[in-house]
Amino acid sequence: MSARRGGRPLPALAAACVVLGFTQAAPAAEIPSAERRSGYEFMSRETRAMQDDDATNPAVLWLLDGEALWNRKDGAAGRACADCHGNARASMKGAAARHPAWDAAAGRPVNLEQRINACRAGRQQAAPLAYESRDLLALTAYVARQSRGMPVDIAIDKRTKPFLDAGRDTFMRRQGQLNLACTQCHDELWGRKLAGSTIPQAHPTGYPLYRLEWQGLGSLQRRLRNCLTGMRAEPYPFGAPEFVDLELYLMWRARGMKMESPAVRP
C-alpha cells in the first residue's frame, strides 16, 4: 500500500490514556527530518510535470507581470524596485527562503508581501498593494522565483523566537466548530486520504503558487484561510500577526527543504 502515516500509533496511546485517566493529549511529535516531504511528492505525475516546465506552469504568466512591475517606476519618489535593487535575479536570490524575517521598523517578523509593501511605502512613496491582488502576487512570485532550488533558511534568534513559539502554538491549538488542530492532520495523518485528497505535510515551499482548485495564483495565507474555513474556524484577516507567526513556524518547520516558487498544486 502506498498509504503512509507519520507520527505515533494514536489509538494505542489513546487507549492507554483512557485507562490511566489522562485526557490531556501529549503534544504531537515533529516530523523527523528524513521523513519530510514536499506537497510536490504527493501530486500526480501530470501536475508535477506542469510545475516543472515553464511552458506549462500557469504561474509563469504572473512572473512576467512581476518582472515588469519590478522595473516600472512607481509612487511619489518615481522609483522602480530595480533602481535600488538592480537585477532581481542576483539581488533577490534567497530572499523568499529567508522570510518571514525580522523587521526592525515593525518590531516583529514580516512576510515577503509585507516586506514588499514596506519598501513601496518607504522607498517609492507608493500606496501598498492589496493582499491577493494580481500585482502583489506577481511581484511576490517574481521575487520568490529567485529562490527556486535554494534551501529554506529561517534564522531564529532571541528576537524572533517568541513569534516562532506563537506560531507553533497556533499550529497545535484546536480551533473551530470541528475542534481540529493543524498538527492532527499535518503531523499525524499526512499521506492518508481526507475524502479524495491526500493530506500533505504542510511545508510552504512553493508560495505564492498556482492551485488548480483556485484557477489562479494565491498566497500561503489564502491557503491557510481555506483550512481554517474547513475546520469551521474564523480565519484571521490577511496580514494578521497570527498568520505571519504561523507562516514563520511553517517555514522554520520546512527549514532546509528546497524552495519551489511558484509551485503548482491540485
Binding site: 491549538r173 484546536r174 480551533q175 473551530g176 466548530q177 470541528l178 475542534n179 481554517l228 474555513t229 469551521r232 474556524a233 474564523e234 480565519p235
Partner: peptide
C-alpha cells in the same frame, strides 16, 4: 469549550 468558531457556526452544534 471551543476556540475561534466561525460566526456562522457559533453557538450551534454540528
Amino acid at each position: 469549550g471551543l476556540t475561534r468558531v466561525a460566526p456562522a457556526f457559533r453557538g450551534k452544534t454540528v
